[in-house]
Design a protein around this nucleic acid. Structure first.
Lengths: 293, 293
DNA sequence: TATGTAGTGAAACATTTGTTGCAAAATGTT
DNA sequence: AACATTTTGCAACAAATGTTTCACTACATA
C-alpha cells in the first residue's frame, strides 16, 4: 500500500543526511512545484545537486524521481478538476449583493467541511461508527440549533435499525428515557455554545452511568468534549451572526452513512422494503410525476 | 492584460486547420494535463504529431509549447494553494477503512456545496431571501429526511423574527395552520425523493392560494419544483444508500443568513438580548466551563 | 492545366532530462 | 591512528524532450 509523501517524509526526515534534508525541506515547502518543474530545476532552486534529488526519491522508497513526481502530479490533477474548478469559474459579484453573500457563505461551508477531514477527526468518526454499530441502544440528544442534527441522525439510523431513540421533549418525556440505559449504550449528543444546561448535565450523567458518548460540538473546550468519549469538532463560525450548523450536520450525515456501512447487508433489503411500504401507503409520490400545471 | 487560454482558443478555433483543431480540442478537454504531461505524451494521446502541438502553440500566439504550458501550470499552481489545500494534505487510506469512507463522504459533501454556487442558484437564493424578508408570514414545511431542514430554517428565522411558523405534526395540527395564510405569505418547503404526498399537495394548494413558494428539492423534475416559485436544487447523491441531506441543509443555513442580513439592524440587539435572557434562565452554560472531571 | 499556398507527416536536430558510476570528502568506529 | 561507511560532488550516460526542416499532399486560383 502506498504511503503519502508527506508522511514518509516526516518519519524519515530526521535520519536523512544533510543534503537530502535540504532537498526534502524544499520539496515539502513547494509541493506544487514538484510536478510542474523539472527535477534539475528543482535541484537548482533547492541549492542541491541534481543527483541529490534522485537519491532522496530512492531513500524514500520510490523507484526514481519520476515516481515521486507522478504522485504529486496525481494530487494536483485531481484537486484541479474537482473542488477548485467550480470556485474558479465564479463571476465577480457586487460585494454587497445577496448573491455575493450567498457565495461567501456557501464557500465557507464547503471549506469548513473540507477541514473536517483531519486525520484525528477521521479516526474519531471511525471509532464512533464502530461503537454505534456495536451498541445495544443508541440515544440521540440535541436541543435548539442542535436539534436538527440529533433528529437527522436519529432518523437516518432509524431507517437501518430499531436500536435508536431520540431524546426530545415531545410530551415532556425527554431525558427520562435515559434511565433505562445500561452501560455500553451510546449517547449521540450535539451541542454548541451557548450550551444548554440540561443537555450537558444529561451527558455527564450518562457518562457517569457508563454510557459511551459520541459528541458533536464546536470546540475542544466545550463541556461536551469529554475526555473518554468520541469528540467531533464542528466549527460554527459564520459571516452571519447565526451559527453555521452545516458542518455539524455534515458530520451527522457522514456518521450515519458510516454506521450504515458497518451494519449487515440485510439492511439494504430492509431499506428497500421501507420504500415500497411507504409507496403502498400512498405516503409518497412517484418521482416521475410533475407538479406544475 | 493576459487573455485566458480558453478564451483565445474559442475565438480562433473555427479558423484553425483540421489537425490543430484536434490538438486544441484535446487540450481544452484536458487542461490539467497540459502542464503535467510532456508535449509528446499529449500529442500521442490527442492522436496528432508532436509537431502539431508546437504549431498550435505558435498559431495561438505563444513563443512555443513551453509558454502555453507555463500558463496552464500557473493556473494549476494557484488552484492548488487555495481551497483544495486541505484536501491535498490527505493521507492515502486503506480503501475499505471507515476513515477512507468518511473522507470520501465529507469530500463529496463539500463538493456538492461548492456546486450549489451556480449563477442560477445564487440568483434564486437572493430572490428567495428578498421575498422572505418582505413576507408577512413564513411557513416552514418538511417531513422525514427533510424535517431537520425545515426545522432548522424555522429555528434560525425565529431568532430574528416572529413571523415564522413551523408546520409539523406535533399535536396533529400540522398543515391546518396554512388555512390562515394569505396571498403574499411565503411557504418554505423542503422535500426530496421519494416525495411525501401530503407535502406536495399542501405545497400545490398553497401555491394555488397565492402563497409564494420557496422550495428546496433534489431535482428540477421534482413535484415541488413549481415554475413560479423559487426552486433551489440540492443534490442528494451519496456513496451511501442514505440520502445526503447536507447540501439541502447548507441551503437552508445560507438562506437564513441571507434573510438575517436583510432584516433591520435592530435585530442584532434583539438576538443578543435572547442570549442574555437564556443565560439568566440558566438554560445555558457559560462557555468557559469544562465538563470533565 | 498549371501554379501558388497552406497543411501535414516523418525524420533529424540540438537540448535537456533523470540517472548512475566513481573518486574525493566527511563521518563514525575500533 | 587506521579503518570501514556513509555522504557528497562531478562527469558522463542514454533516453526523451521541444523544435525545425523538408518533402509531399490537397486544394484553391489563374
Amino acid at each position: 500500500m502506498m504511503v503519502s509523501f508527506a508522511q514518509s517524509l516526516a518519519t524519515r526526515f530526521a535520519t536523512l543526511p544533510e543534503q537530502l534534508q535540504v532537498a526534502a525541506r524544499w520539496i515539502a515547502d513547494h509541493p506544487q512545484d514538484v510536478a510542474l518543474l523539472s527535477m534539475r530545476d528543482q535541484a537548482r532552486r533547492a541549492g542541491v545537486q541534481p543527483a541529490t534529488m534522485t537519491r532522496l526519491a530512492k531513500a524514500l522508497g520510490y523507484d526514481g524521481y519520476d515516481a515521486l513526481r507522478a504522485q504529486h502530479a496525481e494530487v494536483l490533477r485531481r484537486d484541479g478538476q474537482g473542488l477548485a474548478a467550480t470556485a474558479r469559474r465564479r463571476r465577480p459579484l457586487d460585494a454587497n449583493s445577496h448573491e455575493a453573500a450567498a457565495q461567501a457563505l456557501l464557500t465557507a461551508s464547503a471549506d469548513q467541511i473540507l477541514h473536517l477531514q483531519s486525520a484525528d477527526n477521521l479516526a474519531v468518526l471511525a471509532k464512533a461508527a464502530a461503537q454505534i454499530a456495536m451498541a445495544r441502544r443508541i440515544y440521540c440528544l440535541g436541543q435548539r440549533s442542535s436539534y436538527p442534527i440529533a433528529w437527522h441522525f436519529h432518523y437516518a439510523l432509524s431507517l437501518i435499525t430499531d436500536r435508536v431513540q431520540l431524546l426530545d421533549g415531545s410530551g415532556a418525556v425527554g431525558l427520562d428515557v435515559l434511565t433505562h440505559a445500561v452501560p455500553g449504550d451510546v449517547l449521540f449528543v450535539c451541542g454548541v455554545a451557548p450550551y444548554t444546561r440540561a443537555v450537558v448535565e444529561a451527558t455527564l450523567q450518562a457518562q457517569a452511568d457508563g454510557l459511551r458518548i459520541v459528541a458533536v460540538t464546536d470546540s475542544p473546550m466545550s463541556p461536551l468534549a469529554t475526555q473518554q468519549g468520541c469528540v467531533l469538532i464542528a466549527p460554527t463560525e459564520s459571516a452571519s451572526f447565526l451559527h453555521a450548523m452545516t458542518p455539524a450536520f455534515a458530520i451527522a450525515d457522514c456518521l450515519a452513512a458510516l454506521v450504515a456501512r458497518a451494519e449487515d447487508p440485510a439492511m439494504l433489503v430492509r431499506l428497500e422494503g421501507l420504500d415500497r411500504q411507504l409507496a403502498a401507503r400512498n405516503t409518497y409520490l412517484p418521482k416521475t410525476q410533475k407538479g406544475s400545471t
